[in-house]
């Protein structure tokens, strides 16, 4: 996987930016942007890989306070396709300008809700026809959901206090499954050993990865060992 694992890098914003770049590259997208709010740290984070000229223009115009993409998606649990907002006047205002900077109006925003009332908004764009867009979207949406939460959790946990409050709490099932994986068993092996379905193993692995802030199962195992949740074998 070519996705940058954020937790392996030091915090500076340029690493967040390289994460956005790698998401774009992996999923055939033009641009990506993240905006998030951490009510515990009382801080706001934003990172984009849009052209610098558009970033400047966006902030100059104060679009971040009236961009309907952000205000709408924050109230949704599902990804919001920007096609839903094409009739909206505020949307037209922002995207008429964006167009001059080469930003397409084909895009979507994924809302992330965290445990502390923290909210993150992850947006991606791609200049293509409606048809191509809907095909691409159904192919990459699950991966984008994962990327959105990974990015959001990383930004939220970059604050010391949030990190202390959110020690990963794995269930005993999740730990048990990671322990078998650490012992070299495949997912199907684990399912057979525990007498549960492969899909149940998958669901617990996914949850374990998310709680440990890991993109892959091997990263999750490594981190679980580091935290003393799983014994190295």
């Amino acid at each position: 996987m070519s996705v940058v694992d954020l937790s392996k890098l030091a915090y500076p914003e340029n690493n967040l930016r390289s994460f956005l770049d790698s998401v774009c590259e992996t999923h055939e997208l033009d641009y990506a942007a993240y905006a998030g709010m951490n009510p515990i740290a009382q801080s706001v984070h934003g990172v984009v890989n849009y052209p610098d000229a558009w970033q400047t223009r966006y902030v100059e115009q104060g679009f971040q306070t009236r961009d309907p993409v952000l205000t709408t998606a924050a109230r949704s649990i599902a990804p919001v396709d920007w096609q839903r907002m094409r009739g909206d006047e505020a949307f037209k205002t922002v995207f008429r300008e964006a167009h001059d900077f080469g930003i397409a109006e084909q895009g979507l925003t994924i809302p992330v809700r965290g445990p502390f009332g923290d909210v993150g908004l992850f947006s991606v764009t791609r200049n293509c026809s409606d048809d191509e867009w809907s095909k691409l979207k159904s192919k990459i949406l699950g991966e984008l959901q994962n990327a959105a939460v990974h990015l959001h959790d990383h930004v939220v946990h970059s604050h010391e206090l949030t990190r202390v409050l959110s020690h990963p709490s794995l269930s005993s099932r999740e730990v048990e499954i990671l322990q078998w994986i650490a012992a070299g068993k495949t997912q199907q092996d684990v399912a057979d050993i525990l007498n549960i379905s492969n899909r149940t193993v998958e669901v617990h692995l996914r949850s374990g990865r998310s709680k440990l802030g890991a993109l892959t199962t091997s990263q999750a195992v490594g981190r679980a060992i580091g935290l003393g949740l799983v014994y190295p074998l």
Binding site: I77, V112, G142, Q145, N146, A148, V149, H150, S169, L170, S171, S172, R173, V203, H204, R206, S207, R209, S210, K211
Partner: peptide, 14 residues
């Protein structure tokens, strides 16, 4: 229901 166990958490589970 979870008998004191933490719940599942995943971007792709609702």
């Amino acid at each position: 229901i979870l008998a004191g166990e933490p719940p599942l958490r995943s971007p792709t589970i609702w």
